[in-house]
Amino acid sequence: MKQKTFLISGFIASLFLAGVVSFYASSSPDGLEKVAGEIGFLDSAKEHTNSDGVLADYGVKGVENARLSTGAAGVIGVIATGAISTGLFFLIRRKPGGIK
């Protein structure tokens, strides 16, 4: 498979998972939250500094439809992660021909 085809397929799969499949994810507490609740230290958690943020808790503020809200947050996250991480990895990569 060509490198370009491979990267585009992976990116589209990520968009699909975060944009569509994420709606069906389990909303039960995760392992740490569950343990914290059972043992009793869940109360020591403070509210998140950014809990009023536009994308807080993987939803777009103001979008009523849950499917759309989660999906859009997922798509924004995939694009942001893709752009920022690929940019940074290119910055630190070994430059062709260079010894530095």
Binding site: G10, F11, L15, L17, V21, S22, Y58, V78, G82, S85
Partner: peptide, 17 residues
């Protein structure tokens, strides 16, 4: 680019509890 894609894929799959 594979490293960037890996980070992106992990972000996406971390949404899938």
């Amino acid at each position: 680019p594979l490293a960037g894609l890996t980070a992106t894929f992990i972000f996406a799959v971390q949404m899938l509890n």
